[in-house]
Amino acid sequence: MKQLDKEEQQLLELLPKGIERPRPLKELVKLTGWNSRKVRGIINRLIIVHHQPIGARYEHPNNGYFIITNDQERRQALAPLTSQITMMSRRAEIISTAELNKKSPLNATHRPK
């Protein structure tokens, strides 16, 4: 495994252990001074490149990122990801099999004459 760079180490240290008090993206942005895209990119690198067990909780108001510490937290972190994968697969399947040259009700009303 590759060694963490300074930014990766900094962000990893800001993540709480366990799902009880996840750290919201907004707070990570404020603490680091980076934009949300950079924070999400580094979190992605920590997971993909460095195999860090980082989960996200999406339920408001207790949403944010955390370090997974047990199997229950792992299951909770995986649930929204697997749901998203399922929905994206459905969309891809429908798009790949949709008829293309058929007039749709949307196109018919906005077509120039």
Rank of each mutant, 00 (worst) to 15 (best):
M1T: 13
K2I: 10
K2T: 14
K2S: 10
Q3L: 12
L4V: 01
L4E: 02
L4I: 05
L4M: 03
D5I: 04
K6F: 06
E7C: 14
E7I: 05
E7Y: 07
Q9F: 10
Q9W: 10
Q10E: 14
L11V: 07
L11C: 01
P16K: 07
P16F: 05
G18N: 03
P22W: 00
R23T: 09
P24L: 08
P24V: 07
L25S: 09
K26W: 07
K26D: 13
V29A: 04
V29R: 09
K30C: 10
K30S: 13
L31F: 06
T32R: 05
T32M: 00
T32Y: 00
T32A: 03
G33Q: 05
G33E: 10
G33I: 10
W34R: 10
N35I: 03
N35W: 12
S36N: 03
R37F: 13
R40P: 02
R40G: 06
I42V: 09
I42R: 11
I43G: 06
I43M: 12
N44M: 13
R45G: 09
L46N: 06
L46P: 03
I47S: 06
I47L: 08
I47K: 02
I47N: 02
I48D: 13
V49I: 15
V49G: 14
H50N: 12
H51E: 12
H51K: 10
H51V: 06
P53W: 12
P53H: 14
G55A: 07
G55M: 02
R57S: 10
Y58N: 12
E59V: 14
E59A: 11
E59Q: 15
H60P: 04
H60F: 13
P61I: 03
N62M: 11
G64P: 02
G64T: 02
Y65T: 01
Y65V: 05
Y65D: 03
F66V: 06
F66H: 01
F66R: 03
F66I: 03
I68Q: 04
N70T: 04
D71N: 08
D71F: 00
D71K: 05
R74I: 03
R74M: 07
Q76Y: 00
Q76V: 00
Q76D: 08
A77L: 02
L78E: 12
L78A: 10
A79P: 05
A79K: 10
S83L: 04
Q84D: 10
Q84S: 07
Q84V: 04
Q84G: 11
I85N: 11
T86F: 15
M87H: 13
M88F: 01
S89Y: 15
R90Q: 08
A92S: 14
A92P: 01
A92K: 02
A92D: 06
E93N: 14
E93K: 08
I94Y: 01
I95Q: 15
S96A: 14
S96L: 02
S96G: 05
T97V: 11
A98C: 11
A98L: 13
E99L: 08
L100D: 04
L100R: 04
K103G: 15
K103H: 04
K103T: 08
S104Q: 14
P105A: 11
T109S: 10
H110C: 11
R111L: 04
P112S: 02
K113G: 09
